[in-house]
């Protein structure tokens, strides 16, 4: 998978023995490891934008990766404002870009 560290000089193979799961990002099929934060799986798949802000429609992505900044929130399985850096990935998850507080682009809201 792109963006993964296949072999690390100190940590070795970090994702050995982890189960690969399939999830959807804006309708596109992607793969990640079960239990890793959704944000990590998205990063490994090259996704940079997690949401657009409500008022100014500005893009946001991973910023703190420890659940503090809320920049990484997305619509997960229909629920908005899910902090993807803290939420474990599971088989079949539906992850969508969040526009304001919705998964619909602004021109469709």
């Amino acid at each position: 998978m792109a963006g993964r560290i296949a072999q690390h000089p100190i940590l070795g193979c970090q994702n050995e023995n982890k189960k690969i799961v399939t999830f959807h990002y804006d309708g596109k099929e992607m793969k990640g490891f079960e239990g890793e934060p959704i944000a990590a799986a998205l990063k490994a798949n090259g996704v940079m934008v997690h949401r657009y802000t409500l008022k100014q429609h500005k893009p946001r992505g991973i910023f703190c990766a420890i659940g503090r900044c809320t920049d990484c929130v997305m619509v997960v399985d229909g629920e908005p404002n899910v902090r993807t850096c803290m939420t474990p990935l599971a088989e079949g998850m539906d992850v969508r870009t969040q526009y304001g507080v919705s998964d619909k682009p602004f021109d469709q809201q």
């Binding site: 690390h8 940590l11 934060p37 990063k43 910023f63 990766a65």
Partner: peptide
């Protein structure tokens, strides 16, 4: 500074050293 791709050094560390993903 708010563009996706700008992140704390701690976030980069978390991604690479805990989850094996390149920041």
């Amino acid at each position: 500074w708010t563009l996706p791709g700008v992140m704390g050094a701690g976030a980069a560390q978390t991604l690479m050293n805990l989850y094996g993903v390149k920041p």
